[in-house]
Design a protein around this nucleic acid. Structure first.
Lengths: 126, 126
DNA sequence: GTTTATACTTACAAAAATGTAGGTACTTCC
DNA sequence: GGAAGTACCTACATTTTTGTAAGTATAAAC
């Protein structure tokens, strides 16, 4: 009926802010862009996301799962076998996060090249 | 010559990660989307970004200025008159951040409506 | 029988983020 | 003369985040 927008991250009490914090958290961002490439097991995520501790990875995945961004499927076998993937909602988020990250990497590279700084190539090689 | 990408946020030592953290920090995100609407003075930003303290706002602006995202112009008058705006680089970042935030707000609203939860309208009204 | 592997959890410690309160330097308005 | 307004900074306390190390269950490999 009306055209107003209920969710507003500029408003401190709005729950959307919590979700935004999860999506844009240090590890949340990185987990999302890795999961965009396909489903991963816990240990595979840990290897891909450089520098993350098991504790932080578990916590980040639980937050994203709680927000409906990540799907966790556990196969009841020993040793445990758990697969993480993006939900439809999570894929929408991950695509936007990836757009920001991809743009940033390019923009920083362009700036490094423009300033003649040859160091970055040695620092960040995949 | 080669097609590799120097900057890589998945690599823990890459400086791009620091910049990304500034862009996706709690207050960084909100400052960027407010500045996307046009230049603002310090006190105007403080009013717009709900819940931010002067301390955090100043710190966030300094980080973004240091990364080349925000331009700070001070007029030497009393009382002080300082105007903040986005650089070209900052506008690129802000557009991507806004894309994520705008999508998120819509997505959460859709989900709230779909689940018949009428509370959000009362919580986040602008 | 000891090691290896998985996907975590928990307790504790250290580090980082954030809030609070106060101060500054003027000038203008009442 | 006292209060208000601007854009901060600084010290201090508190809160939150993050890291480290250890532990869990069990089967398969050695």
């Amino acid at each position: 009926m009306d055209g107003n927008r209920p969710s507003d991250v500029l408003s401190p009490e709005c729950p959307s802010r919590q979700v935004l914090r999860h999506l844009t958290s240090t590890w949340g961002v990185l987990v999302l862009i890795v999961l965009l490439k396909g489903e991963h097991r816990f240990s595979a995520l840990k290897r891909r996301v450089g520098g993350v501790s098991e504790r932080m990875l578990a916590q980040t995945l639980q937050q994203l799962e709680g927000d409906g961004m990540v799907l966790r499927v556990a196969h009841p076998v020993v040793p445990p076998h758990v697969v993480y993937s993006l939900t439809d909602l999570g894929q929408g988020a991950a695509l936007r996060v990836q757009a920001l990250v991809g743009w940033l990497e390019s923009a920083l590279d362009d700036r490094a090249i423009a300033s003649g700084d040859g160091k970055i190539g040695r620092i960040c090689q995949v």
